[in-house]
């Protein structure tokens, strides 16, 4: 599903690499936490998976494709097979909940009839049935993140990438989001999630990958958060 072969990434005008010779593999259907202190390279790792960045050295394979060999015009097609969720939700404030999810389908050219059918279905799935016409501003943070997850999952991606999805939420809402991600994982979708949330990692007991200053320092099945931040 994801394979890193000796991947290093040094941003322009930086002397220290953000990611330092990382090699690992994530299999289909896994649920993986990416942990590490601030600046350890978690977001960089995820951006490399999305091909928002390219590695300085080494090779990144996602969904069986070597992203280094993928030409620019094929990138959009590759991203359609992934779902992405971020700390800041990234919703359009002037569109309703339904329109936000529909937008993601419109811009990849899905026909109107299909959109009208799947949008209510996926909103039901994330527990927002009936809130289709609400504006994002009228929703709680947890509900907004559910909209973002609905948008990420509406195409039933093989892989869901989440960068601190509970970072802006209180513990109660965070638990709700984790339950949702767990359910999505049970449908067969691989979930890769960067987080700072010790309670969640300790409770879920999934595979934990820890980065420190760009180095891979721990890769543990059924792991715990494991360090004091």
């Amino acid at each position: 599903m994801i394979r890193f072969d000796n991947v290093s990434k040094t941003y322009p005008k930086q002397n220290r690499p953000a990611l330092d010779n990382v090699s690992l593999e994530i299999e289909k259907g896994e649920f993986v936490f990416l942990v590490g202190s601030s600046g350890s390279g978690k977001s960089t790792f995820l951006r490399l998976c999305l091909r928002e960045e390219r590695p300085s050295t080494g090779a990144v394979h996602v969904l069986g494709k070597d992203l280094g060999k993928l030409s620019n015009w094929k990138v959009p097609h590759m991203r359609r097979q992934l779902g992405t969720v971020f700390q800041d939700f990234r919703l359009l404030p002037n569109k309703t909940v339904g329109q936000n999810v529909a937008f993601a389908l419109e811009v990849i050219g899905k026909p109107k009839s299909a959109i009208n059918k799947v949008v209510p279905e996926v909103l039901d799935l994330v527990g927002l049935g009936g809130k289709e016409g609400r504006m994002p501003g009228e929703l709680s943070g947890g509900e907004q993140q559910r909209v973002a997850i609905a948008r990420a999952f509406v195409n039933r991606p093989m892989l869901l990438i989440a960068d601190e999805p509970t970072g802006n939420l209180d513990p109660q809402n965070s638990v709700g989001i984790m339950k949702l991600l767990d359910r999505i994982n049970r449908t067969g979708t691989t979930v890769l999630m960067a987080t700072h949330d010790q309670a969640i990692v300790d409770q879920m007991r999934k595979r934990v990958i820890e980065l420190d200053k760009g180095l891979l320092v721990r890769d543990q099945a059924r792991g715990v958060y494991g360090y004091q931040s």
Partner: peptide
């Protein structure tokens, strides 16, 4: 940039963006 950022995220083609 918000709209176009989301469009790129969900895999809209360059042409479409």
């Amino acid at each position: 940039r918000r709209e176009t950022g989301i469009m790129r995220l969900v895999g809209a083609s360059n042409f479409y963006v």
